[in-house]
Amino acid sequence: MEPLKLIPKHEVLSDSAAKAVAKKLNTPIDKFPKILASDVQAKLLNAKPGNMIAISRHDPAGEYAYYRIVVPG
């Protein structure tokens, strides 16, 4: 099996894009997986708590976007 690429691409979504994602997935914002504001990748993007980060994953099961909400910490 090809090992996963260690660090996938992270991207901060605009508030309107985040809302659209939450609506499309029919999930309230606070139920999304979290990422700490102190996380290395969140810091690199200068993401603030409340922002949504889109992650382009390349799993053996396929390519897809994964979303995380920045939380304080």
Binding site: M1, P3, L4, K5, L6, I7, P8, H10, I35, L36, D39, V40, Q41, A42, I55, R57, D59, P60, A61, Y66, R68
Partner: peptide
Amino acid sequence: YGIEAARNIIANEIMQTITEEGITVSF
């Protein structure tokens, strides 16, 4: 590297550990 990389390491390591035993589990 951050939480996403940690997730990939966990998945990779579990996968590798299981595969080494000659067992297949879907990713």
